[in-house]
Design a protein around this nucleic acid. Structure first.
Length: 437
RNA sequence: GCGGCCAUAGCUCAGCUGGUUAGAGCACAAGAUUGUGAUUCUUGGGGUCGCGGGUUCGAAUCCCGUUGGCCGCCCCA
């Protein structure tokens, strides 16, 4: 059909698509409530400044922003973190600790759409505020795993890559690099997986070539894939900071192991995440086959609440999106078939019988049963066909013969047996049948 | 912001080196069937061939532009 289309990167959710989305949302909510997280929501439109304050002016290029009729610079939300930091920051003094919150909402980014990435998408966000220790990481990573495992995905399907920005900074400091140099190195580490050695070009241009020995150490550190390796790499350094980080690492991994989740975790210092505001552990969920972009990402951001005008409040959070998650469960054949069948389908003889049928239909619906019926008079044969196709368990037959006797025929659509029921007992019989099968 | 591929019915697609009124399957609807079902048969609705321009006697077909989709780059909270 010609005419109007939805905007690029925006989706229509037809009933079938909507069911798929609901399925994802439901599993996420289930996981969050099992973990004792409370749900909140917030405006989709925020002052542009909120995002610039968090991420810098360059962020505007990726935002769906505009000037409203009052001359305000505004933006559709590209993420939840700044908003939830504002909300928590405003009431931090009165909130019980630990603050465990989650939300599900739609987000908007003005970017070119591609596989797994659209301009409007849904995300589940979970954050813990007020807990500086690694206990918060254990809880959140376990929740993230449940947010994927809830669909039937296993450790064969996805993995959580765990890394640590603070550890990187402390390590680079121990190697004698300055803060500015370290930032440039981390940016190279972030790209190394994709670009290989070229990733270090930017650093070389800004700070001169890296000493061969230092670079080797960095590359070795980046390739670390386990706690034992990590401990070995850090053993030569007498640094209290590094020792503290290592203790946190042991705690996180021990906690997740105790929860029987060790198989889901990959220690991988190659992950640093582009965002500079992360202050400690960072983690990403990836499809093991590796043909999808990241499923989820998160980490610790201890300075952000304060930066956005709130109190000094440590925080960890992650977000998981519906697009990539949907692709993965689709690929693994884990999308259930959705049925929205009525409980009861009313077969109605004609105009005269419709009055009696309507009375019962409404009574059944008011009692909570799902009841459907044909709008127009149809041949009985046709109605039974429609009743069968609807997926209803029972058909109630309102024919002239039955009504003359003061009964309704109740037909079990699965085995085609019928019984006559006095009209005043219809509700009771339906309730009986549906609870008993 | 940049590059590659693509665009025919609700869906999947056919339509030759340009040639009458653009087709099939599926889906949807009606009938065969006026009180009992998934089969079958018949029929029907649905398309400005993404849009605009050009070449031509003639364009779904060739050319240019544009919009949208898919894929990749940049970016990725």
């Amino acid at each position: 059909m010609a005419g109007f289309q939805s905007l690029p990167g925006f989706r229509d959710f037809y009933p079938e698509d909507f069911s798929r989305r609901q399925h994802i949302f439901r599993r996420w909510r289930l996981a969050a409530s099992a973990f004792g997280f409370q749900e909140y929501d917030a405006p989709v439109l925020e002052p542009l400044e909120l995002y610039k304050a968090k991420s810098g002016d360059e962020i505007e290029a990726q935002l769906f922003n505009f000037t409203d009729k009052g001359g305000r610079e505004v933006s559709l939300r590209p993420e939840m973190t700044p908003t939830v930091c504002r909300m928590v920051g405003e009431k931090a003094g009165s909130l019980k600790r630990p603050i465990k919150w989650f939300s599900i909402g739609e987000f908007y980014r003005y970017e070119r759409a591609q596989k797994g990435r659209l301009r409007a998408f849904n995300q589940f966000n979970a954050d813990i505020f007020g807990e500086p220790g690694p206990e918060a990481e254990i809880e959140l990573i376990a929740l993230l795993i449940q947010c994927l495992a809830g669909f039937g995905l296993s450790a064969e399907d996805f993995t959580i890559r765990l890394s640590d920005r603070d550890l990187w900074f402390f390590y680079l400091e121990a190697l004698g690099l300055s803060d500015v140099q370290s930032r440039a190195i981390l940016s190279a580490v972030d790209r190394y997986e994709k670009m290989g050695d070229d990733a270090f070009k930017g650093y070389a241009e800004a700070h001169g070539a890296l000493a061969a020995e230092t670079k080797e150490k960095i590359l070795a550190f980046l390739k670390i894939k386990g706690l034992a390796e990590l401990e070995a790499a850090l053993a030569p350094f007498q640094s209290a900071k590094l020792a503290t980080r290592l203790a946190d690492w042991r705690k996180v991994l021990a906690g997740l192991t105790a929860m029987k989740l060790a198989d889901f975790i990959t220690v991988d210092l190659g992950v640093v995440r582009g965002l500079a505001y992360y202050t400690g552990f960072v983690f990403e969920a990836f499809d093991r086959k590796g043909d999808l972009r990241a499923l989820a990402g998160g980490g610790r951001y201890n300075d952000l609440v304060k930066k956005l005008g709130g109190p000094d409040l440590p925080a960890v959070g992650f977000a998981i999106g519906d697009v990539t998650t949907g692709l993965l469960i689709e690929q693994r054949g884990l999308t259930p078939t959705f049925v929205s069948a009525p409980d009861v389908y009313a077969v109605i003889g004609g105009e005269a019988e419709r009055t009696a049928a309507f009375a019962d239909i409404h009574a059944l619906r008011a009692a909570g049963f799902r009841v459907d019926y044909p709008f127009k008079d149809l041949a009985f044969g046709k109605q039974f066909k429609v009743a069968a196709e609807s997926g209803a368990r029972l058909a109630l037959i309102y024919g002239g013969d039955e009504l003359a006797k003061g009964v309704v025929k109740v037909r079990d659509l699965s085995d085609r047996t019928e019984q006559e029921v006095p009209r005043e007992q219809v509700l009771a019989v339906v309730r009986d049948f549906l609870s008993g099968h």
